[in-house]
Write a protein that binds this DNA or RNA. Structure first.
Length: 466
RNA sequence: GGCGCGGUAGCCAAGUGGUAAGGCAGAGGUCUGCAAAACCUUUAUUCGUCGGUUCGACUCCGAUCCGCGCCUCCA
């Protein structure tokens, strides 16, 4: 079966092909840069990375835009508290975001867009909405009138017909015409950063950012738009209302939403003390690859319960795959090619691909990988595996790693050089030959203390860094 | 109240109307000077509970219990 995704809009799994040729126009909601991102955010970004990697594995070219929200209430507040401009303040966390996603080996989107770089476009969009009668002013702010957009609610599958247009709700606080109306342009208050516009000084609402940035670079109809489940309503619903009111065309064909991550079955919160950033985890010695593996190993539409036990299990699982890879690369096999195993490789590739084609079923893809590894390891033990089969094993791992990207250890700085390690191994081999096992074991222990693990195999000594 | 998601072995987690993938952990074993790695065996007669449909359901239907998310900012 062909590549297919679950579409929040239709609540069904649908075959996917791009609208234009083989280029996928993808918009993913990026971070609001007022702090370090936490592992829950990173779960969603990991999902987006898996998505774009798999699309590419399937032969598509990516045109992927991710926004950086760098003007927003919390940013204004935090920047003021730090006595910095919003630009100074957000620069730091934007940089941190790029570092964190790079640490987790996420591919960079073709384009990052900052909200503050698109203010003119947002103003123009709001003016278009104004001309079409979708807006009204209230206390200096511009609001979107959802009563003018009959299909409002189609993404989140909420029925708003019961809310009477014109009914005034929360009059004192918002003075909106309808409880669901949302702000397009916020009037300036106090010393807040602001831009001069035809409708007064102020700053853009959050929702208009994404509509404008997406359409500016990707056109009026996107192939895929993604974000966390919590963005489905109201953020994405509002994006649809704005964009489709402007263009009269479908805004995005596929909406993919990533479920949340919880920690020890609870929502992450600073007060509970179960709130983690990537930096918290790497500082405790957890490998970025293990974190990436854990975040990617659970299907993106299923809640992921983060535990340290799970993180350790992820690290062990990766180790097993790496050991397998080293065995493929270093063991000596009998010449020739076993045809049954060659077929087994093809079957494994097929199973792997079909799993990911099925709405990115990463858990099933992992199962396909481990079954293949077990079978071929068994074949190596029995001698059935031949030299000509090694390429197939490596091909499978390359396929695997083009999506999961966890096999290459993150390089640690310092430590012994390869040549130094080889010299110590030579000493140990000599000691073993003269049956001086005490000395041999001592060398192995010394190496282990420096993070180098030795394995004696019938083809000689194999080593790895821990 | 509305919308949505989930409850599968110690933990994590796939899955199909035809009799339970995979990973981690545990136990035993093979191999090895020892270790490591790898492999083998073993750990759910059972898939929240109760009914129904069916030759047959964990998978379909109904009910029910429990947990969670969104409905205000939020990945």
């Amino acid at each position: 079966m062909a590549l297919r995704f679950y579409n929040t809009l239709t609540q069904q799994v649908e075959p996917f092909t791009p609208l234009h040729g083989n280029v996928v126009r993808l918009y993913t909601c990026g971070p609001t840069v007022y702090n370090y991102v936490h592992i829950g955010n990173l779960r969603t970004f990991t999902f987006q990375d898996i998505l774009r990697r798999w699309l590419q594995a399937r032969g598509y070219k990516m045109d992927h835009v991710m926004n950086i929200t760098d003007i927003e209430d919390k940013i204004i507040r935090h920047a003021a508290a730090a006595q910095q401009t919003i630009y100074e303040y957000t620069a730091r966390y934007t940089e941190a975001f790029l570092e964190d996603t790079a640490t987790l080996r996420m591919q960079r989107p073709e384009r990052f867009v900052k909200a503050t770089e698109c203010i003119d476009d947002m103003v123009a969009a709001i003016q278009t909405l104004e001309q079409k009668g979708f807006t009204y002013m209230s206390e200096g702010s511009v609001y979107y009138r959802i009563a003018k957009f009959p299909s409002y609610g189609k993404l989140s599958h909420n029925d708003f017909s019961g809310i009477r247009a014109g009914a005034r709700v929360d009059v004192d606080e918002y003075d909106k015409a309808d409880a669901r109306d949302f702000v397009l342009w916020k009037a300036k208050k106090d010393e807040e950063p602001a831009w001069r516009t035809p409708f007064g000084e102020g700053r853009p609402g959050w929702h208009i950012e994404c509509s404008v940035m997406a359409m500016k670079y990707l056109g009026e109809t996107l192939d895929i738009h993604t974000g966390g489940v919590d963005l489905t309503f109201p953020h994405h619903e509002n994006e649809i209302a704005q964009s489709e009111a402007i263009t009269g065309k479908p805004f995005a064909r596929f909406w993919l939403h990533a479920e949340h991550l919880s920690v020890d079955a609870q929502k992450m919160s600073k007060s509970v003390g179960n709130f983690y950033t990537l930096r918290d985890l790497t500082a405790e010695g957890y490998a970025p690859e293990a974190i990436r593996y854990l975040l990617a190993s659970v299907h993106y539409r299923k809640k992921l319960n983060f535990t340290f036990e799970g993180l350790k299990a992820a690290a062990t699982s990766i180790e097993r795959l790496r050991n397998y890879k080293r065995r493929l690369e270093t063991a000596k096999f009998a010449p020739g090619t076993n045809s049954r195993l060659a077929e087994r490789t093809q079957a494994a590739l097929k199973a792997f691909d079909e799993s990911l084609d099925d709405d990115l079923n990463t858990a099933e893809a992992l199962a396909a990988a481990f079954e293949y590894v077990r079978d071929t390891n068994t074949a190596m033990d029995s001698g059935e595996f031949q030299a000509g089969n090694a390429a197939g094993g490596l091909e499978f791992l390359a396929r695997f790693d083009s999506v999961f990207d966890v096999l290459q250890p993150t390089q640690k700085t310092g430590g012994l050089s390869d040549a130094g390690i080889d010299a110590m191994i030579a000493d140990r081999t000599a000691a073993k030959k003269s049956r001086d096992f005490g000395k041999a074991d001592q060398i192995r222990k010394d190496l282990a203390q420096q993070g180098v693990i030795l394995e004696d195999t019938k083809d000689g000594v194999r080593w790895k860094r821990q």
